[in-house]
């Protein structure tokens, strides 16, 4: 564990807390893509299957359980409890366009052709693009609430911090996993446009509004 990974995990945790608090406090999930949240639930479920087979550390187990549980809570809040506030008219990204290609890629490019390993690889590939329905929703409505922007910033920062963690681990531990690194790069690049708008607008107190 190094500082970059710890900050990455904390940033990820903060993102989840921000999202759940936003939905709970405002009793609304307006502006949030349920499609992205479903994809995250799939990502954590398929990645953390190793909870059943491998023990890494108490920290690791705890975080995995939190990530899986909160992803299902979020989906439940959006599709059941606060269904009436869900922006389904704008949340029209077709998730099969992400699930199918990442499934095929995981079958073709993986470290080991076993069920658990292919599912882990699939989850890495899928996570890298899982935010697209959310970014699509923001681009369709042309704006995002500040709280949604903070959520996206924390969520995007997490994999960016992991990239630094991987650079560190490459030099310090001679450890690297190309699949995670390439997917993490893709994931972080997808946020760049948003990061730019966040820094130039939201941090200056303005609402995140896309140029017409």
């Amino acid at each position: 564990m190094n500082i970059f990974r710890l900050l990455g995990d904390l940033s990820h945790l903060v993102a989840i807390i921000i999202l759940l608090l936003k939905i709970w406090k405002t009793r609304s999930c307006a502006g949030i893509s349920g499609k992205s949240q479903i994809l995250f639930a799939i990502v954590y479920t398929t990645r953390y299957l190793d909870l059943l087979t491998t023990y890494v550390s108490a920290y690791n187990t705890f975080m995995k359980i939190i990530f899986i549980a909160t992803s299902y809570v979020t989906v439940f809040l959006m599709y059941v409890k606060f269904k009436a506030t869900y922006d389904h008219n704008h949340d029209t990204f077709r998730i099969e366009f992400l699930i199918l290609p990442t499934s095929v890629l995981a079958l073709l490019i993986n470290n080991e052709f076993t069920i658990v390993e292919v599912l882990w690889t699939f989850s890495i590939y899928l996570e890298s693009v899982a935010i697209l329905p959310q970014l699509f929703l923001v681009s369709k409505t042309g704006e995002a609430e500040s709280i949604t922007s903070h959520y996206l910033f924390a969520l995007g920062s997490y994999r960016g911090l992991y990239l630094l963690n991987w650079v560190y681990r490459y030099y310090a531990e001679d450890h690297y996993d190309l699949i995670a690194i390439v997917a993490g790069l893709v994931q972080t690049i997808l946020y760049c446009d948003f990061f730019y708008l966040y820094i130039t607008k939201v941090l200056k107190g303005k609402k995140l509004q896309l140029p017409a």
């Binding site: 990820h12 890494v56 470290n111 080991e112 076993t114 390993e117 992991y162 450890h175």
Partner: peptide, 10 residues
């Protein structure tokens, strides 16, 4: 690099 299938990250 060893092709270990244990993933120690989240």
């Amino acid at each position: 690099q060893t092709l270990e299938t244990t993933h120690d990250e989240l």
